[in-house]
């Protein structure tokens, strides 16, 4: 049978252990194949990684079979979980040595020269003003932890790493970030800056 012909939720729950094992092997192959397509161009992913990711994803998928609502193909839903598993692990490796203290210090240094690359400031007046308002708001409108969280976002730190550094739950960290964003947004609005201004200044 091809992957599109298998009734995955049924086969993976099969009480016949041989049938279930065959479905698990087939799904692992599908995930492995997809991960290879998505990640093969990266220099930091080996064949062994791909196999680990596929195996780990398979377990996560089996664990949450009940959450599959049939609103997409099963393999699409499963592949999304596999990618999340793989990327989460790859991001963790990149950020594992960064501490909360480093991020707090990063926020403190925001006003120092050189902290924002020259090309951000550029010659455009509206861009310079926007960055100045943002910097001012990050420095004065946030709690230290909110500031660390926003610096993490600025640095493109993965959300899971921010959660880990803050030492809170995912939902508490999410709320902290969301509150911080709303506070910053209010400061931008108070300075008369709109979404359109941002899009124009940064060519978004």
């Amino acid at each position: 049978m091809t992957p599109t012909e298998i009734n995955w939720p049924v086969a993976l729950r099969a009480t016949d252990t041989a049938e279930q094992a065959a479905a698990m092997r087939a799904l692992r192959d599908v995930l492995h194949h997809g991960l290879r397509i998505a990640l093969s161009s990266r220099g930091d992913v080996s064949e062994a990684h791909l196999e680990d990711f596929a195996q780990e994803s398979l377990l996560r998928i089996l664990d949450r079979l009940d959450q599959f609502q049939g609103r997409s193909k099963f393999t699409t839903w499963a592949q999304a979980i596999a990618l999340n598993t793989a990327f989460t692990e790859l991001r963790r490796k990149r950020w594992q040595d960064v501490s909360l203290d480093a991020l707090l210090a990063d926020g403190e240094r925001l006003a120092e020269p050189g902290m924002i690359a020259e090309d951000v400031l550029g010659a455009q007046e509206d861009r310079q003003r926007l960055v100045a308002v943002l910097r001012e708001a990050i420095e004065h409108q946030l709690t230290p932890k909110q500031r660390a969280a926003i610096m993490g976002e600025l640095r493109e730190m993965p959300f899971d790493q921010i959660v880990e550094l803050l030492g809170t739950s995912r939902s508490a960290a999410y709320k902290m970030l969301h509150d911080a964003r709303r506070a910053l947004k209010q400061s931008l609005q108070a300075a008369g800056i709109t979404g359109t201004d941002i899009q124009n200044a940064f060519n978004l």
Binding site: L134, E153, E156, K185, I198, A201
Partner: peptide, 16 residues
């Protein structure tokens, strides 16, 4: 140093 992509993407996030 923070790049224009990084600053721009956080600003865009705030706008949204």
């Amino acid at each position: 140093p923070l790049t224009s992509e990084q600053v721009g993407s956080v600003l865009k996030m705030l706008a949204l």
